[in-house]
């Protein structure tokens, strides 16, 4: 019994070839005559054979691997890992120190201040962002604009009438001999200016239905047309003829009446 225990304890070594010659021989002899130990020998042999056969399985798996590609993959992995573990440059270390998490509130405050500063600058200094720049168009209703334009038209008309009045007065009050001199430069030019102004006034008068004003202005226009087209060598007869025309149409009187009416906004 004691022999059997010893033999069974040595079976693994015997099977592995680790026993010396004498020990191996005594195990062999014992196995030949002891069925129990022989059975145990078979069991252990089965385990070791099974374990050794796993090596064949490994070989089958190895046959499916591309061994030529593996070194390249491993080398690449070595380079990648080295690259990742490379010591940081001085510049990188500096920025890392600057942007430490503990400084984040400070940077956030600075950033917020900058944003606020930019917004305030835009609002208070730069025209046109949120503040209406000086001289820019204000919003105004159509009614208001109409009223303003009407007032402007009135003033323009009054101005036109006044200047026309002075021009006509200059012309008709001039002595027959000097009328030619005056007419030579000033009246004709002034008449032309007034004619161009009349073109603008036409639109205004039509727009605001100042019919009476337009009629008188038309007569003035006709007169100025005559004045601007007459030749420099105006004869005394021609001047007298124009003066008569002014008298006949009572232009000056009409201008005065019209001026008063416009001033009172009765047109």
């Amino acid at each position: 019994m004691s022999d059997c225990r010893n033999i069974q304890n040595g079976l693994a070594a015997y099977l592995s070839g680790d026993l010396s010659g004498d020990s191996a021989l005594s195990v062999k002899e014992h196995l030949a005559m002891c069925p129990k130990c022989k059975n145990e020998f078979e069991n252990i042999k089965k385990i070791l054979d099974g374990a050794d056969s796993l090596h064949d399985d490994i070989r089958k798996v190895m046959a499916t691997i591309d061994w030529d590609a593996l070194p390249g993959r491993i080398t690449q992995a070595v380079f990648d890992k080295e690259k990742a573990a490379r010591p940081e440059t001085k510049a990188r270390t500096f920025w890392k120190a600057v942007f430490q998490p503990r400084w984040r509130p400070v940077y956030a405050g600075v950033a917020a201040g900058l944003v606020l500063g930019v917004i305030l600058t835009l609002v208070f200094l730069k025209p046109g962002v949120l503040r209406t720049p000086p001289g820019a168009k204000y919003y105004a209703s159509n009614e208001f604009i109409d009223r303003v334009e009407f007032q402007m038209a009135k003033r323009e008309t009054l101005d036109y009438l006044e200047r026309s009045e002075y021009l006509i007065l200059d012309f008709i009050q001039s002595p027959p001999g000097k009328a030619q001199l005056l007419q030579k430069d000033q009246p004709a030019q002034k008449a032309k200016d007034l004619l161009s102004k009349k073109r603008y006034l036409n639109q205004q008068l039509d727009r605001f239905q100042m019919a009476k004003a337009k009629e008188i202005c038309n007569q003035i226009e006709f007169l100025f047309l005559e004045l601007s087209q007459i030749s420099e060598e105006l004869t005394a007869d021609e001047i007298e003829k124009i003066q008569k025309l002014v008298d006949q149409k009572q232009l000056l009187l009409k201008i005065k009446l019209l001026k008063k009416e416009i001033e009172k906004s009765e047109v």
């Binding site: 796993l54 090596h55 490994i58 798996v61 190895m62 691997i65 061994w67 593996l70 070194p71 491993i74 080398t75």
Partner: peptide
């Protein structure tokens, strides 16, 4: 080195 020893290492790791 990898070429020389990769199979031996694989046998061990696969085991």
């Amino acid at each position: 080195l990898t070429r020389m020893y990769q199979k031996k290492v694989f046998v061990l790791t696969y085991s």
